[in-house]
Design a protein around this nucleic acid. Sequence first.
DNA 1: TATGAATGAGTCTTCATTCAT
DNA 2: AATGAATGAAGACTCATTCAT
Lengths: 205, 205, 205, 205
Amino acid sequence: MGKAAENKQIKLEALFKSAYDLFLSQGIAKTSIHDIVQNAGVAKGTFYLYFKDKYEVRDRLVSKTAGKLFLAAHKELQKTEISSFEDKIIFIVDYVIGKLENNKPILQFIYKNLSWGVFRQAVTRNEADSDFNGLDYFQELIQENTSLRLRSPETMLFLIMELASSACYSTILENEPVSFQELKPDLYNAIRAIIRNHVISDATT
Amino acid sequence: MGKAAENKQIKLEALFKSAYDLFLSQGIAKTSIHDIVQNAGVAKGTFYLYFKDKYEVRDRLVSKTAGKLFLAAHKELQKTEISSFEDKIIFIVDYVIGKLENNKPILQFIYKNLSWGVFRQAVTRNEADSDFNGLDYFQELIQENTSLRLRSPETMLFLIMELASSACYSTILENEPVSFQELKPDLYNAIRAIIRNHVISDATT
Amino acid sequence: MGKAAENKQIKLEALFKSAYDLFLSQGIAKTSIHDIVQNAGVAKGTFYLYFKDKYEVRDRLVSKTAGKLFLAAHKELQKTEISSFEDKIIFIVDYVIGKLENNKPILQFIYKNLSWGVFRQAVTRNEADSDFNGLDYFQELIQENTSLRLRSPETMLFLIMELASSACYSTILENEPVSFQELKPDLYNAIRAIIRNHVISDATT
Amino acid sequence: MGKAAENKQIKLEALFKSAYDLFLSQGIAKTSIHDIVQNAGVAKGTFYLYFKDKYEVRDRLVSKTAGKLFLAAHKELQKTEISSFEDKIIFIVDYVIGKLENNKPILQFIYKNLSWGVFRQAVTRNEADSDFNGLDYFQELIQENTSLRLRSPETMLFLIMELASSACYSTILENEPVSFQELKPDLYNAIRAIIRNHVISDATT
DNA sequence: TATGAATGAGTCTTCATTCAT
DNA sequence: AATGAATGAAGACTCATTCAT
């Protein structure tokens, strides 16, 4: 990487970092381009060399952040002995939600955007922003259990994702209608029930 | 009602109607107070006689709209012979989603806000804005089936609400990951599974 | 006084009292007609039955307030044995400033307006607002000492008034350049010097 | 100075000039930001690049204007043969008031603000706005007369400043209670009397 | 590539005043 | 005489975007 290219990378990272901090601390709506560049220590015009507007920054940050989160969950899963598919899904959900529970600003930031689109293709805007492809990863997870057969696995995953994310948003951030800890067993049971709805039983005899 | 009070009501309704139309057609962020009052045919100052800002209008509109939707679902349910609790829930969910499917702007508008908060107490700001109290209504639904016993019914309802609303948002508006029609059976199965997780079986013998 | 006239008087007083409180507590610029009528418990339109605008209220309040202050000073002076003209002036100045020192909002409020205009004719707008006529009173003060002869007494009084009021404003409210207590002896000496400048000495022999 | 920096200076000066003209001709309260930028021929946003609000413009203009005035008085004093401290003070007061008498809008504008604060440190906001430091200058004036000893010279100066400024405001602008020309001898006598009150006499034998 | 001064449209908000009741 | 809903002009301030350097 030449010196110029290196410098570019530094500016880009500074802008990402600055925007991330500001989005988390004061929300996207209240963060202006001015805030971002000032915090990043670059000039205003520079922002427009890298991004179209602050929403592009947001989207790419969501990809990055979500990708990191699932990658970490995956690595943690590797360390365990868990073999059942159901348990693996629960493990990942639990890991990710656990992280969000401890970092509410990230939850706040990511929630409205971490949806199917991101999970299916964590890289929406810029391929370089995330190394994690949610759907591919999930396919691998299924194939690990050769004996497992699922009906419309994508739909199943979608239902789990939507349920988990919106349920944890309300309970973690607002304790409504119950605390997340209280919700947890019922949520995980619901997820298990959804999975079972999609498992094709071999017992056809 | 005196002439003055009548006039007041007319202005208020004009503002509500104007804001509703604009929120649905161009979104909340792009709608300014100027747009709202111009469209309503009243002066700018009048807006501030009735509302603090456009977000108050939004919240009260969500209450009103969601309340109407569930009330209509309820009336429709009355006309049927459905007696099982599970079927009643599915009927209501199906009715409401059906309406939203045919009116995507309303879905768009209501989604980010029609959540537990609204359902639990459709009346958040102004008691006059909605006649429908989601939670009360649900309690009655349970009590109609005297033989039915549920474990943490509120949590159950919460899970169903969150799952249904976020799943229908993505599928109806973006056809992602599948069309809503394709999702429907799986979604309803998921809801039924959640309900069953919470039913306390009498078969204790 | 008829019942209607009585009622009018009550509203007028309520408006005066309300404006006075608000002017002292938050300043004139930040006090709106809305604030005044709300605080007074009357309707907005009523304000305009009694006053042209808030500046009329202010001017009449200044007259009232300043008039009361000097009247009180006068009454207090009566109780003393002070006979020298110089001492009488100092007594009055000291009494008035003493009151203002203990009530800084009044000082703040009155300062920019209690000037020669008000003193010369405490009643500027409405004769009913004040019973005190500064200049007349001062004339009487001079005539009490038959042996005293002054050159341009009005100018002398003017110089004393201007010096005393602006000097006490800065020192009392901002402690600049010194505290009022520190300034006091020098201020009173300056006043005495000004008086002596205007006394026509009898010692012509 | 680069082309950009030069251009900046031009805009800043245009804003100062525009605001100054408008403040003098129509008063601060009735001058809006809109007026200032329009008159200056710059965009609205540009105003906020240089000032927080119109009150900052006012304060900096007062410093500039008062500084210029006293500097001119000083230069004029240099040309004379005046050696007595008392006469020097009178000369400066006379020079400054003479200028204000011929330019009533400036008097109007400066009066409410040219007080101790400004005199003590003409540079309040921006060091670049004024070259004149009132208090320092006064100290030098005293030291020129090595034989002169003053008791609390700052208080003395304060009394003179307050008396002169408020007395000339009322007489020049309103001819109340007399014209300034009529007041002049009495005012200057009063000032001389104040100075003498503070002179420590050497004649201790 | 990077800068940052300049822009000016756009938005919110306040408030004195009117007038039908 | 009293009310208070309605007005809309007026003003402050923000901010994404451009462009000459």
